[in-house]
């Protein structure tokens, strides 16, 4: 699966969440704001108001703010895997958030989306998210399945 296809399929998944501004393109995810809102819905106790408050909402074209937001999202996700799921993702190349912020790199964006997806399908209320995925178009489900399988192959308790 190409990075394009992975990102587009995971964008379709992102659009199933009730977000303040529904992203219409992968580009709109590169400021980290929508991803942070998804994490707050997935695990509100972990990604709490204090954490969300550190995400800057008015990003505009400022790539430094994008990097800062994306770093917080990535660190939060990795902490969630360690502290809540009790898993480490070994051999999974962590997304380079600078490349996402500076040049909207789809390969890196795909990896970050994959990690957020992993939080959703492993969290306490995963049924809710998995059932939504099971209602999606077959091609999207297939892309999501591949993304999860790749992550699962790197998980170490």
């Amino acid at each position: 699966m190409s990075h394009d296809e992975l990102c587009e399929s995971l964008l379709t998944w992102v659009q199933t969440f009730n977000l303040e501004a529904n992203p219409e393109t992968v580009d709109e995810l590169t400021d980290g704001v929508a991803l942070s809102q998804i994490l707050c819905q997935i695990a509100p106790n972990f990604f709490n108001a204090g954490w969300y408050g550190r995400i800057k909402k008015e990003v505009g074209d400022n790539w430094r703010i994008r990097v800062s937001n994306l770093k917080k999202v990535l660190e939060g996700v990795l902490d969630f895997y360690n502290d809540v799921l009790g898993q480490q993702i070994r051999d999974f190349k962590h997304p380079d958030v600078s490349k996402i912020a500076e040049r909207r790199d789809l390969a890196e964006m795909g990896r970050l989306l994959q990690l957020v997806l992993g939080c959703a399908v492993n969290c306490e209320h995963k049924e809710e998210y998995i059932n939504v995925i099971m209602g999606m178009e077959e091609s999207v489900q297939h892309a999501v399945m591949n993304a999860i399988q790749e992550l699962m192959s790197k998980e170490m308790p």
Partner: peptide, 29 residues
């Protein structure tokens, strides 16, 4: 070799996968 094999990407495969995810225990331990 499996190209075109019926059922390789069908609903059953997807349902099996997601149902197995549902039955997987969440969280550590």
């Amino acid at each position: 070799m499996d190209a075109g094999k019926p059922g390789a990407t069908n609903e059953g495969v997807l349902a099996n996968f997601f149902n197995s995810l549902l039955s997987k225990k969440s969280g550590p331990g």
